[in-house]
Design a binder for these strands. Structure first.
Lengths: 347, 347
DNA sequence: TAGGTCATGATGCACGTACCTCATATCTGG
DNA sequence: CCAGATATGAGGTACGTGCATCATGACCTA
């Protein structure tokens, strides 16, 4: 049984009193309006820190008589995982509205850096407080991220990070750990070693390159008997991935394992089943989607590593909320966990 | 690219206009104050439904000049999972405060139904909007839940449900599915069948009985060669569980598996290690805590099924928020997923 | 029909913040 | 030392809802 705090929460009035300045000055500091001497601003900051003032987000949004505007920019195309991300966003639109958050989704051509950059450039700070993007590490995108940030838009990366840019936050799994987990499983599946082919979407995608690195490192350290073939880029595309897998199967009669660290899994399953070798090759893929579910059920895929799109969207929205009013530090977010799915624990 | 809605969100004023009544009447209906004829109330309800009015929770809390008061009632004792639940609550106290939610935690003696009932009875509706409890299915608790609900306190169950009471919501994993998953893994671990002992905390706990049922059903259906010993109740207690496991090991020299669907895992690991048979017996336990982590690392435990306490607390808080203002329907919550942990994907 | 009860309307203040205007104080440069 | 620029203060209104008060009108009953 702990005590109920009787102390009111601190308000702007308290800050003004503590700092020995007027309400107007506190307001100018809080909302970084011009016309405050540095020394005065410091007094206010000190008072804020001392009495532990936290601006009331709800009252703030109420006073502005406007909603927080959030834009998700998500790749389009045949990538089912991106579709499920978009679905997750759609499911949150309603509830978010009740918290004064207005969410819109833009779908752009997958792996088209310039389209993404244009989309970011087109965002107006008055109509968008925060942009959440799924992006690869291309210079044009990185520049657009920094530009948007300078225009006053909080940019967050989702799924795949853009370290080195002005993005305020990244939401996604630890992809190197995912790669290591895949390696650890694959190693145990193949105690005698053998050839394992690796397929990626694009090595410009940070998540893909991180997975690859983790996979390679863990295999090298723990399972040196396994030989890696690839990586080969399938551009997260159904038909391209299918062609790649078909050729791999044809060329390597002794292929023991397959790790697809990107998307395009319906192509993968199709090629495996066409070859009649489904079930004889240990296959690890990413993201629980329709094709991977079918693959698990049929036995074509052994393990799926999943990054829980609903959880990611939830965290993205929460982080956006807490970042929106210039809270300086990192937002408190639960880490996204790597889900491991076999045929038996399919949800 | 979808359109930005230009329409303002509906307010109480809009409801009043649409219903052809005054603001005061709308207020009476919304806050179920007396003095409104049934016919009038219906007009208001209809208007609310028609224009899709949703009360602004933040403005509402602001107007009341008070925080939402949330009480977590969590068992005390040597149960590490309950400790990690309490930790998860503690981590949320700060961020929740920024959303005008005041959280307090009560720890009560584990498995003491009367203590829990007293604790619920002591809650004052003016100082507690919502209670979140972890409880077994005892009549005194069920009565206390219904009582608290009638006093105007929203009661939610956490981890273990109380179907048949007036509790508004349950947050936790699908425990029958967890039991089935355990069975599915155990069956694959023991292709030749054998004796598997089952230990529970208390079969009055709905989560435990659900797991047991799922485990039994799945074994019976898929792995008839496995013989179940027990269940034996260890009351989620370290020393009692240790004694039980020690005796099981002594009595059954041919014990092939052990499923602890309750807590007390430090006792389980201690007994296994003392017997020198750790690693030779397939062991499945629940909840990722210090003892189960150690057990996974040492090989004494093969698999841990986990229910993500942080996620549960997060969902509980979100649900409390959405239920607080008498929103009639179910709150939108992400289901809590069953995490599967082996030595290699320990987080 | 007078007196009472009940349903409803009208209105105003409060909550914590944003943002505006206007007045005054303090500093700066020549 | 004064004009002009800049910094600060004072105070108001608004946001959407909760809650209180008071007035009015309808209806019932003796």
């Amino acid at each position: 049984m702990n005590e109920i705090g009787l102390r009111r929460r601190a308000t702007v009035h308290d800050v003004a009193r503590a700092a020995g300045v007027s309400l107007a000055t506190v307001d100018r500091v809080l909302n970084s309006r011009p016309g405050v001497r540095a020394a005065t601003a410091e007094k206010v900051e000190a008072a804020i820190a001392e009495i532990g003032f936290q601006r009331d987000l709800s009252a703030s949004l109420l006073a502005r008589a406007r909603d927080l505007k959030l834009s998700f920019i998500i790749p389009d195309g045949s990538n089912e995982f991106m579709a499920s991300l978009a679905d997750a966003v759609a499911r949150r639109v309603g509830p978010a509205l009740a918290d004064r958050m207005h969410i819109e989704t833009h779908r752009i051509r997958a792996l088209d850096a310039d389209a993404l950059a244009r989309s970011l450039d087109a965002l107006d700070a008055r109509q968008c407080d925060c942009a959440v993007i799924v992006a690869g590490e291309e210079p044009s995108v990185q520049a657009a991220v920094d530009n948007a940030t300078r225009r006053g838009i909080v940019v967050m990366t989702l799924v795949s990070d853009l370290p080195g840019t002005l993005r305020r936050h990244f939401i996604g799994i630890d992809n190197a750990a995912a790669g290591r987990t895949a390696a650890s499983l694959m190693g145990r599946f193949l105690p005698d070693g053998g050839k394992v082919a690796v397929i990626a979407g694009s090595l410009h995608l940070r998540d893909h390159s991180d997975r690859l690195e983790g996979f390679r490192a863990a295999l090298a350290a723990e399972f040196p008997a396994i030989e890696i073939i690839g990586p080969i880029e399938g551009h997260d595309e159904r038909s391209e991935t299918q062609a790649i897998v078909a050729e791999l199967l044809e060329r390597h009669g002794d292929l023991a394992g397959l790790y697809n660290l990107g998307a395009g899994n319906s192509g993968l399953v199709a090629a495996l089943e066409a070859s009649k070798r489904a079930g004889a090759i240990r296959v690890i893929a990413h993201e629980l989607t329709d094709p991977t579910r079918r693959g698990l059920r049929s036995g074509a895929i052994d393990v799926v590593l999943d990054q829980n799109p609903d959880g990611e969207i939830r965290e993205a929205i929460a982080a956006a909320r807490s970042l929106a009013l210039g809270s300086s530090g990192k937002p408190v977010t639960d880490p996204i966990e790597i889900g491991i799915f076999l045929r038996d624990n399919l949800r």
